[in-house]
Design a protein around this nucleic acid. Sequence first.
DNA 1: ATCTATTTTTAGATTTGTCTAAATTTAATT
DNA 2: AATTAAATTTAGACAAATCTAAAAATAGAT
Lengths: 218, 218
Amino acid sequence: MTRSEENYLKTIFHLGGGDSKSISTNAIAEQMETKPSSVTDMAKKLSDKGLVDYVRYQGVSLTDVGVKTALSIIRKHRLWEVFLVKKLDFTWDEVHEVAEQLEHIKSEKLIDKIDELLDFPKYDPHGDPIPTKDGKFQERDEKLLSEMPINSQGVCVGVKDSSVPFLKFLDKNNIALGNTIKILDKEDFDNSLRIQMNGKEMRISHQIATNLYVKKNP
Amino acid sequence: MTRSEENYLKTIFHLGGGDSKSISTNAIAEQMETKPSSVTDMAKKLSDKGLVDYVRYQGVSLTDVGVKTALSIIRKHRLWEVFLVKKLDFTWDEVHEVAEQLEHIKSEKLIDKIDELLDFPKYDPHGDPIPTKDGKFQERDEKLLSEMPINSQGVCVGVKDSSVPFLKFLDKNNIALGNTIKILDKEDFDNSLRIQMNGKEMRISHQIATNLYVKKNP
DNA sequence: ATCTATTTTTAGATTTGTCTAAATTTAATT
DNA sequence: AATTAAATTTAGACAAATCTAAAAATAGAT
């Protein structure tokens, strides 16, 4: 399994190709910043290896083996991210690039030991769930902040957009995972929110609210 | 800098090419288990990049930049080895293969943080010195066990051969770095040694004695 | 149902790193 | 100094992963 093959599987999974849903070569190319013709070539190769189902002009979806492989790479990526933050004091906006490299290290023992060292974390620094060794996901009932009703409360548990600028913006405004949030008011005009976070009142734009995951209190 | 280029620089350094000494393409090919013609190709490329001096039919040696680059890769390799042993309970015969992969991860911050986490170790698990960030080596006055005079004493500080079979052999015979050694007698017939190690008396073949480094007591 | 715009694939080229086989240079021996 | 053996390089080929440009298939609109 080459690094390139692994990156394709991971991308297809992230685009939803794990649920027998067909992903277009164009969509994959755009996500990976490559050309559709390159994707076609790789689709054939992965199909020959039994990792994706590929029908010409119909896109690709992951086979069971493909899903399993993708999950093991995502597992490694997210565990390394936790390692970088928890053990080496990286910030959550610094980890992605390095984890993109570390996820391709081939050693089952290594990643199992990292998992153990971190005490088997369930979520990465951006709140994304870490698949278990046997490829299971811990689903979590979370909502986008923008979907929460007025007067409801919750805890900030993840980000949808984990780009560096967004993460830095959150830092600057003291918005961190684990913070408690109460929706005070919605502004019909621009869909912005008035919220209370850790006691303090603040205003949140719609753009931000659609990129923050909240776990609603019962 | 590609992974392949890094591996060539590392190999040339290990073969002594860091001291303006010319290393033959054949020697490099043999060490890397590749073909001399492939080495020639890479020699040209590294020469174009100013990392080696290459004269046709005369072999290659590292430039100053080449030495610096090689040392930074060796530094990463050895730091990762320490990490694997100290933090993840790998044994000293398991670390090489994984470190061969980890040494190519590109992140200065990562390796500096690993260095810090390990409290700036000076030697790797096989007793090899770890170059500093600015490419300096800690030289150490060490001798091969086979070169120690009768009745002299020392501490076992490193292995010359760090192959898996040799390391496993040492483990099986309770020979570990840090052990104290006293040479009791030499057998002229087969050059074997009678030694005292950590109090116990034992016999050591010449083959073993030429692959163990000892720091002689004053 | 046909036409058109879009998507997707094919064909052929490119780059990197490798190889084999042949040619060349160097080194060793007489 | 000539000859031979060994080391080294060159030339040409290949596989992986990519690209461009042209061709083919699909989907949407009328």
